[in-house]
Design a binder for these strands. Structure first.
Length: 255
DNA sequence: ATGTCCGTAACCTACGGA
């Protein structure tokens, strides 16, 4: 067996976050990282800077919004740059050192009465359908910003979410459908407080009050033994952070 | 909770999105 560190992080613009991303890659040293909201076109993706740190990269992006990437220093072969019928750059899947790694940026949904909400549900249905015919035992990690809080305890106060997206039964049923297919929702060990939030709104001092949400997930298949997982809160602190913190997961892979 | 930050287009400010 060999130890492999994987991570997911919504960077909220790789351009604005590049110094922090490069520092984070060096200090946390994930073998493979899934990134979301790169907000750049392929032409401006920092392939060279990542390569200097030993990372190969696959990026799917078209500029202003969305954009996902997989970066790896244990080898990388691109497998899929999207889901059938869905054109926005929200899905990148690659084979990395024997592990199939998929970076997803699920649509936000905006509000329940917005057409974007139906789009979000359909997007999650398509993600689930992409697993039809796939062997559930094969080593894989699907990770990213799902924009769904799985349980009431995954938001700071469920009472504040009446009529909101991210906590509806429809969204949760689709997240559960992925798990029921055969994936494990890797639970990060508690850090500050007892709930492993991964996102805090920039406004109103939400991070400092720990009024957050757990909406970023690492979903692993049963053949991937996980021995540690934590939310890297340090990456949410200081000057010009993303509004998301990374989830870092250590696992053993058969060599 | 509505106290911010991002990229963009078009100009040093306003806007859509999150």
């Amino acid at each position: 067996m060999s130890s492999v560190r994987i991570a997911t992080w919504n960077v909220n613009s790789i351009g604005a976050r590049l110094p922090r991303l490069l520092d984070w890659l060096q200090t946390r040293a994930p073998d493979v990282a899934a990134l979301q909201e790169t907000k750049c076109a392929d032409a401006t993706f920092p392939y060279a800077e990542l390569e200097e740190l030993g990372y190969q990269a696959m990026h799917v992006g078209d500029g202003r919004w969305n954009g996902v990437a997989v970066v790896s220093k244990v080898g990388l072969t691109a497998v899929a740059d999207g889901l059938p019928g869905l054109t926005e750059p929200r899905y990148a899947s690659a084979e990395c050192g024997g592990l199939r790694v998929t970076s997803v940026y699920v649509p936000n949904g905006r509000s329940i009465d917005d057409p974007q909400f139906r789009y979000k549900l359909g997007w999650l249905d398509t993600l689930r359908a992409s697993l039809d015919g796939v062997a559930a035992q094969s080593p894989m990690a699907i990770m990213g910003d799902f924009n769904v809080a799985r349980h009431d305890a995954d938001v700071w106060d469920i009472g504040a979410f009446g009529g909101s997206t991210h906590v509806t039964a429809e969204e949760r049923a689709r997240l559960e459908g992925l798990i029921d297919w055969g994936l494990t929702d890797v639970r990060a060990r508690p850090g500050k407080g007892d709930r492993p939030f991964t996102y805090w709104d920039y406004r109103a001092g939400m991070f400092h009050k720990d009024l957050g949400m757990r909406i970023d997930y690492v979903l692993t298949s049963s053949s991937v033994p996980v021995y540690d997982a934590y939310v890297d809160r340090e990456a949410r602190k200081g000057r010009l952070p993303s509004d998301h913190a990374p989830v870092i997961v250590d696992l053993d892979l058969a060599t």
